[in-house]
Amino acid sequence: MTLSTGVLLASIALGALYGVAFCWRPHSLLKLIVKTGSTALLALWAYLLGGPVLLVAGLALSALGDFFLEADENDKFLLPGMGAFFAAHIAYIALFWALPQADRTLLILAAQIGLIACGVVFIRWLAPWVTKDMRFPVIGYGAIILMMGAAALRLDPAYLPVLLGALMFIASDVILSFQLFVRPADAPKRALPSIALWFLYYGGQALIAWGVLSNLD
């Protein structure tokens, strides 16, 4: 077994463990280690396989975001976490634009417009639930992740796993927004939405990485 394969298997094992045993539970040091470790190992896997710097950066910044979001149960690090993910999406946008692009078609344009329109409607619906001091960060984050999704829609068909991963990432953030802003602060996390959120997020990151790495020359 190569080192890169061992790192990937360790990441998958931690990701599965977090999804089935930790994701809906209260904050703890072990939960923080398992969650951050699973995504940090994806970044290490991409690095060991010679992945593009922007891919490694996107994965590493996402792992940093995971650390911040899990580090404090009172959401004291919510803004730093959002900032880390914001930077990760910038890295992904730059990466997607550097990858081979599909021919421009009306279908792709319609998909991009539809994605952005749905995102705008959702953010507009979410806004009243968000405190005033968080509205601008939430709108900015929503805009950047929609740009990431729109960039993924333009990728060559060989990068279909990357597109699926990007859409899964967006779906996970929709669930997360419900947990952060709509769910009452004193309500415990429900297992099913937390499990869906995690596997959409981790699976999306893994697909983005695999889709890029499998197309390396």
Rank of each mutant, 00 (worst) to 15 (best):
L216E: 05
Y201I: 05
A91Y: 04
A84T: 07
L107C: 05
A110S: 14
S62E: 01
A102F: 03
G119K: 09
M168V: 06
G81Q: 11
H27A: 15
I113T: 13
L213V: 01
L54A: 07
G50M: 07
A111T: 00
V174H: 13
L163W: 04
V138Q: 09
V56P: 10
L54S: 04
W210T: 12
S38I: 07
L207W: 01
M134P: 00
L126M: 08
A91D: 08
L29I: 13
L14D: 01
A10Y: 02
W125K: 06
L54V: 02
D66R: 08
R154E: 10
L213C: 03
T105E: 15
H27C: 12
F181Q: 08
G37T: 08
G140T: 03
V162D: 05
V174S: 12
L48T: 12
Y18C: 06
L164A: 14
W97I: 04
C118V: 09
I144S: 00
L49P: 03
G6H: 03
F67E: 11
M134G: 00
L64K: 04
L14H: 01
L49D: 11
W198R: 06
A117G: 01
T105K: 13
L3Y: 11
L59K: 03
S28K: 09
D156P: 09
I113N: 05
Q205E: 05
L17V: 12
A127P: 02
F22L: 10
M1R: 05
L79R: 14
G6P: 06
P157Y: 12
A127S: 15
T131V: 00
L207D: 00
D173W: 07
L41M: 05
F169E: 13
T2H: 10
A143L: 09
P52A: 07
L61R: 08
G165L: 07
S194V: 01
S214Q: 01
P137I: 05
A127N: 13
V212S: 03
A187W: 12
L207V: 00
L106I: 13
H89V: 01
F169H: 12
M168I: 07
V34P: 10
P26K: 14
V121L: 14
A94R: 14
D72K: 13
Q101G: 09
V121D: 05
S177E: 11
A111W: 07
G15C: 07
A209R: 01
D103G: 01
L160K: 08
I170A: 12
F85G: 07
G83F: 08
D156H: 15
N74V: 01
A57G: 03
P52R: 02
D133Y: 00
G37I: 06
D72I: 06
G203T: 03
S194Y: 04
A88N: 12
A46I: 09
P161L: 07
D75W: 08
L48A: 12
W198I: 03
G19D: 09
L213H: 05
A102W: 00
F199I: 11
A158N: 13
L69R: 12
A150R: 04
A196I: 15
L9A: 09
P188R: 15
F85L: 09
F22C: 01
L44R: 13
F169K: 10
F181V: 06
L200V: 02
V130K: 04
I90N: 06
A206Y: 01
G81K: 11
A151W: 02
L216N: 00
A110D: 06
A84M: 10
M148F: 08
L49T: 01
W210H: 13
A143E: 00
